[in-house]
Amino acid sequence: MPIPAVEFEQVRFAYGESEVLRDVSFTVARGEVVAVMGGSGSGKTTLLKLIGGQLRPKSGQVRVDGEAVGDLGESALYAMRRKLGMLFQFGALFTDLSVYENVAFPLRERLSLPESIVNDLVLMKLQAVGLRGAAQLMPNELSGGMARRVALARAIALDPLVMLYDEPFTGLDPISLGVTGKLIRELNDALGSASIVVTHDVAESLAIVDKVVFLADGVIVAHGTPDEVRASDLPFVKQFINSETDGPVPFHKPAAPYGEELGLEVVRG
Protein backbone atom coordinates (compact mmCIF):
# COMPACT_ATOMS: atom_id res chain seq x y z
CA MET A 1 0.00 0.00 0.00
CA PRO A 2 1.46 3.41 -0.88
CA ILE A 3 2.27 5.79 1.97
CA PRO A 4 -0.58 8.30 2.44
CA ALA A 5 0.36 11.91 1.85
CA VAL A 6 -1.17 12.91 5.18
CA GLU A 7 -2.18 10.64 8.01
CA PHE A 8 -3.79 11.46 11.37
CA GLU A 9 -3.64 8.67 13.90
CA GLN A 10 -5.56 9.08 17.16
CA VAL A 11 -4.54 12.73 17.40
CA ARG A 12 -5.39 14.67 20.53
CA PHE A 13 -4.67 18.35 20.98
CA ALA A 14 -5.49 20.88 23.67
CA TYR A 15 -4.90 24.60 24.17
CA GLY A 16 -4.14 24.55 27.90
CA GLU A 17 -7.12 22.89 29.56
CA SER A 18 -9.57 23.03 26.69
CA GLU A 19 -9.38 20.03 24.38
CA VAL A 20 -9.68 20.97 20.72
CA LEU A 21 -9.18 17.63 18.97
CA ARG A 22 -9.97 14.17 20.36
CA ASP A 23 -8.90 10.91 18.72
CA VAL A 24 -8.92 12.30 15.22
CA SER A 25 -7.89 9.71 12.61
CA PHE A 26 -8.06 9.98 8.84
CA THR A 27 -5.82 9.70 5.81
CA VAL A 28 -5.44 11.64 2.59
CA ALA A 29 -3.88 9.86 -0.38
CA ARG A 30 -2.05 11.47 -3.29
CA GLY A 31 -4.43 12.80 -5.89
CA GLU A 32 -7.22 13.27 -3.36
CA VAL A 33 -8.96 16.47 -2.38
CA VAL A 34 -10.47 16.26 1.09
CA ALA A 35 -12.73 18.87 2.66
CA VAL A 36 -12.69 19.31 6.42
CA MET A 37 -15.95 20.89 7.53
CA GLY A 38 -17.30 21.97 10.85
CA GLY A 39 -18.62 24.98 12.67
CA SER A 40 -16.40 27.83 13.79
CA GLY A 41 -14.15 26.75 16.63
CA SER A 42 -14.45 23.04 15.84
CA GLY A 43 -10.67 22.67 15.48
CA LYS A 44 -10.33 22.90 11.70
CA THR A 45 -7.52 25.44 11.57
CA THR A 46 -5.76 23.64 14.43
CA LEU A 47 -5.72 20.60 12.19
CA LEU A 48 -3.82 22.51 9.50
CA LYS A 49 -1.35 23.87 12.04
CA LEU A 50 -0.68 20.33 13.24
CA ILE A 51 0.18 19.28 9.69
CA GLY A 52 2.51 22.25 9.28
CA GLY A 53 4.16 21.52 12.62
CA GLN A 54 3.27 24.96 14.00
CA LEU A 55 1.54 23.02 16.77
CA ARG A 56 2.40 19.58 18.10
CA PRO A 57 -0.17 16.93 19.09
CA LYS A 58 -0.63 16.07 22.76
CA SER A 59 -0.81 12.41 21.81
CA GLY A 60 -1.12 10.43 18.60
CA GLN A 61 0.76 11.05 15.37
CA VAL A 62 0.42 13.36 12.41
CA ARG A 63 2.40 12.02 9.45
CA VAL A 64 3.25 13.81 6.25
CA ASP A 65 4.60 11.46 3.59
CA GLY A 66 5.27 8.92 6.34
CA GLU A 67 7.21 11.33 8.61
CA ALA A 68 5.84 11.96 12.10
CA VAL A 69 5.64 15.78 12.23
CA GLY A 70 5.42 15.99 16.04
CA ASP A 71 8.81 14.33 16.53
CA LEU A 72 10.81 16.51 14.15
CA GLY A 73 13.50 18.92 15.37
CA GLU A 74 13.66 22.49 14.05
CA SER A 75 15.76 21.86 10.94
CA ALA A 76 13.97 18.60 10.06
CA LEU A 77 10.66 20.44 10.45
CA TYR A 78 11.76 23.14 8.00
CA ALA A 79 12.89 20.41 5.61
CA MET A 80 9.50 18.69 5.90
CA ARG A 81 7.68 21.96 5.18
CA ARG A 82 9.23 21.97 1.73
CA LYS A 83 6.62 19.34 0.88
CA LEU A 84 3.78 21.65 1.92
CA GLY A 85 2.02 24.54 0.30
CA MET A 86 -0.52 26.56 2.23
CA LEU A 87 -3.12 29.05 1.13
CA PHE A 88 -4.06 31.34 3.99
CA GLN A 89 -7.54 32.70 4.52
CA PHE A 90 -6.75 36.19 3.26
CA GLY A 91 -3.76 35.25 1.15
CA ALA A 92 -1.06 36.59 3.48
CA LEU A 93 0.82 38.16 0.57
CA PHE A 94 3.94 40.14 1.44
CA THR A 95 2.66 43.66 1.12
CA ASP A 96 6.07 45.18 0.36
CA LEU A 97 6.66 42.92 -2.65
CA SER A 98 4.99 42.96 -6.07
CA VAL A 99 2.85 40.05 -7.28
CA TYR A 100 5.83 38.79 -9.30
CA GLU A 101 8.20 38.99 -6.33
CA ASN A 102 5.65 37.31 -4.05
CA VAL A 103 5.51 34.28 -6.34
CA ALA A 104 9.28 34.33 -6.80
CA PHE A 105 9.83 34.49 -3.01
CA PRO A 106 9.82 30.73 -2.24
CA LEU A 107 11.89 30.05 -5.37
CA ARG A 108 14.53 32.59 -4.43
CA GLU A 109 14.59 31.68 -0.74
CA ARG A 110 14.76 27.93 -1.09
CA LEU A 111 16.47 27.20 -4.37
CA SER A 112 19.36 28.93 -6.04
CA LEU A 113 18.11 29.00 -9.60
CA PRO A 114 19.32 31.24 -12.39
CA GLU A 115 17.17 34.33 -12.80
CA SER A 116 15.88 33.19 -16.22
CA ILE A 117 14.42 29.99 -14.74
CA VAL A 118 12.88 31.89 -11.81
CA ASN A 119 11.26 34.19 -14.37
CA ASP A 120 9.86 31.25 -16.38
CA LEU A 121 8.52 29.50 -13.28
CA VAL A 122 6.87 32.63 -11.92
CA LEU A 123 5.16 33.32 -15.23
CA MET A 124 4.02 29.69 -15.48
CA LYS A 125 2.50 29.75 -12.01
CA LEU A 126 0.81 33.09 -12.64
CA GLN A 127 -0.50 31.77 -15.95
CA ALA A 128 -1.98 28.76 -14.10
CA VAL A 129 -4.06 31.08 -11.90
CA GLY A 130 -4.84 33.43 -14.79
CA LEU A 131 -2.98 36.44 -13.40
CA ARG A 132 0.12 36.76 -15.57
CA GLY A 133 -1.24 40.18 -16.49
CA ALA A 134 -1.06 41.30 -12.87
CA ALA A 135 2.61 40.42 -12.36
CA GLN A 136 3.79 43.98 -11.82
CA LEU A 137 0.94 45.07 -9.51
CA MET A 138 1.36 45.50 -5.76
CA PRO A 139 -0.86 43.45 -3.40
CA ASN A 140 -2.86 46.53 -2.36
CA GLU A 141 -3.94 46.97 -6.00
CA LEU A 142 -5.61 43.53 -6.11
CA SER A 143 -9.16 42.51 -5.24
CA GLY A 144 -9.69 39.89 -2.52
CA GLY A 145 -10.23 37.12 -5.04
CA MET A 146 -7.17 38.07 -7.08
CA ALA A 147 -4.99 38.30 -3.97
CA ARG A 148 -6.01 34.78 -3.07
CA ARG A 149 -5.17 33.51 -6.54
CA VAL A 150 -1.72 35.14 -6.35
CA ALA A 151 -1.25 33.50 -2.96
CA LEU A 152 -2.24 30.21 -4.58
CA ALA A 153 0.36 30.71 -7.31
CA ARG A 154 2.93 31.36 -4.56
CA ALA A 155 1.84 28.27 -2.60
CA ILE A 156 2.27 25.99 -5.63
CA ALA A 157 5.54 27.61 -6.72
CA LEU A 158 7.54 24.59 -5.61
CA ASP A 159 5.02 21.91 -6.66
CA PRO A 160 4.19 20.76 -3.12
CA LEU A 161 3.17 17.23 -2.23
CA VAL A 162 0.43 18.46 0.10
CA MET A 163 -1.66 21.59 -0.39
CA LEU A 164 -3.47 23.06 2.61
CA TYR A 165 -6.29 25.54 2.11
CA ASP A 166 -7.55 27.57 5.07
CA GLU A 167 -11.08 28.78 4.27
CA PRO A 168 -10.32 29.46 0.58
CA PHE A 169 -13.90 30.50 -0.22
CA THR A 170 -14.51 33.05 2.53
CA GLY A 171 -15.57 36.48 1.35
CA LEU A 172 -15.43 35.81 -2.39
CA ASP A 173 -17.97 36.84 -5.02
CA PRO A 174 -19.70 33.98 -6.90
CA ILE A 175 -17.36 34.20 -9.89
CA SER A 176 -14.16 34.16 -7.82
CA LEU A 177 -15.70 31.38 -5.76
CA GLY A 178 -16.18 29.20 -8.83
CA VAL A 179 -12.70 30.06 -10.13
CA THR A 180 -11.05 29.20 -6.82
CA GLY A 181 -12.89 25.88 -6.57
CA LYS A 182 -11.95 24.95 -10.11
CA LEU A 183 -8.31 25.91 -9.51
CA ILE A 184 -8.08 23.79 -6.36
CA ARG A 185 -9.30 20.72 -8.23
CA GLU A 186 -7.29 21.30 -11.40
CA LEU A 187 -4.04 22.12 -9.64
CA ASN A 188 -4.39 19.05 -7.46
CA ASP A 189 -4.85 16.82 -10.49
CA ALA A 190 -2.08 18.49 -12.46
CA LEU A 191 0.46 18.34 -9.63
CA GLY A 192 -0.61 14.91 -8.39
CA SER A 193 -0.63 16.32 -4.88
CA ALA A 194 -3.00 15.81 -1.97
CA SER A 195 -5.20 18.71 -0.87
CA ILE A 196 -6.92 19.43 2.40
CA VAL A 197 -9.54 22.16 2.21
CA VAL A 198 -10.81 23.58 5.48
CA THR A 199 -14.10 25.28 4.74
CA HIS A 200 -17.64 26.18 5.69
CA ASP A 201 -18.74 26.42 2.09
CA VAL A 202 -20.86 23.33 1.51
CA ALA A 203 -22.05 23.75 -2.09
CA GLU A 204 -18.72 24.86 -3.52
CA SER A 205 -16.64 22.23 -1.79
CA LEU A 206 -18.96 19.25 -2.32
CA ALA A 207 -18.68 19.97 -6.04
CA ILE A 208 -14.90 19.56 -6.15
CA VAL A 209 -13.77 17.19 -3.38
CA ASP A 210 -13.35 13.41 -3.21
CA LYS A 211 -14.00 13.05 0.50
CA VAL A 212 -15.52 15.08 3.31
CA VAL A 213 -14.61 14.93 6.99
CA PHE A 214 -17.02 16.54 9.47
CA LEU A 215 -15.60 17.83 12.73
CA ALA A 216 -17.73 18.79 15.71
CA ASP A 217 -16.34 19.53 19.17
CA GLY A 218 -12.99 18.08 18.13
CA VAL A 219 -14.34 14.70 17.05
CA ILE A 220 -14.91 13.38 13.53
CA VAL A 221 -18.67 12.86 13.48
CA ALA A 222 -19.02 11.80 9.86
CA HIS A 223 -16.95 11.22 6.77
CA GLY A 224 -17.53 9.96 3.26
CA THR A 225 -17.81 10.94 -0.37
CA PRO A 226 -19.94 13.96 -1.30
CA ASP A 227 -22.78 11.67 -2.37
CA GLU A 228 -22.68 9.72 0.89
CA VAL A 229 -22.65 12.96 2.82
CA ARG A 230 -25.62 14.35 0.91
CA ALA A 231 -27.56 11.17 1.63
CA SER A 232 -26.55 11.09 5.28
CA ASP A 233 -29.19 10.76 7.97
CA LEU A 234 -26.98 12.10 10.73
CA PRO A 235 -28.70 15.13 12.25
CA PHE A 236 -25.48 17.15 12.45
CA VAL A 237 -24.58 16.57 8.81
CA LYS A 238 -28.12 17.35 7.69
CA GLN A 239 -28.16 20.55 9.69
CA PHE A 240 -24.81 21.60 8.25
CA ILE A 241 -25.58 20.77 4.62
CA ASN A 242 -29.04 22.33 4.68
CA SER A 243 -27.83 25.32 6.73
CA GLU A 244 -30.54 24.94 9.35
CA THR A 245 -30.20 27.42 12.20
CA ASP A 246 -31.05 25.01 14.98
CA GLY A 247 -30.36 21.34 15.52
CA PRO A 248 -27.57 19.38 17.18
CA VAL A 249 -25.52 22.59 16.90
CA PRO A 250 -27.76 24.82 18.99
CA PHE A 251 -28.57 28.39 18.06
CA HIS A 252 -28.02 29.45 21.67
CA LYS A 253 -24.73 29.21 23.44
CA PRO A 254 -25.40 27.44 26.75
CA ALA A 255 -26.34 30.06 29.35
CA ALA A 256 -28.20 30.49 32.61
CA PRO A 257 -32.01 30.36 32.19
CA TYR A 258 -33.22 33.43 30.30
CA GLY A 259 -35.93 34.33 32.79
CA GLU A 260 -33.53 34.12 35.67
CA GLU A 261 -31.06 36.50 34.01
CA LEU A 262 -33.83 38.99 33.31
CA GLY A 263 -34.83 38.82 36.96
CA LEU A 264 -38.29 37.42 36.12
CA GLU A 265 -37.85 34.38 38.35
CA VAL A 266 -37.27 36.62 41.35
CA VAL A 267 -40.43 38.62 40.73
CA ARG A 268 -42.50 35.47 40.46
CA GLY A 269 -40.95 33.97 43.61
Partner: peptide
Protein backbone atom coordinates in the same frame (compact mmCIF):
# COMPACT_ATOMS: atom_id res chain seq x y z
CA UNK B 1 -1.49 39.87 12.26
CA UNK B 2 -1.89 39.37 8.51
CA UNK B 3 -0.33 35.88 8.74
CA UNK B 4 2.68 36.88 6.63
CA UNK B 5 5.06 35.42 9.22
CA UNK B 6 3.06 32.18 9.36
CA UNK B 7 3.06 32.03 5.57
CA UNK B 8 6.84 32.39 5.59
CA UNK B 9 7.16 29.63 8.17
CA UNK B 10 4.99 27.34 6.06
CA UNK B 11 7.21 28.08 3.05
CA UNK B 12 10.08 26.69 5.14
CA UNK B 13 11.61 30.16 5.48
CA UNK B 14 12.45 31.06 9.05
CA UNK B 15 10.91 34.49 9.79
CA UNK B 16 13.51 35.18 12.48
CA UNK B 17 16.29 34.75 9.94
CA UNK B 18 14.51 36.48 7.05
Amino acid sequence: ATEQLSAMEMMAVNPIAR
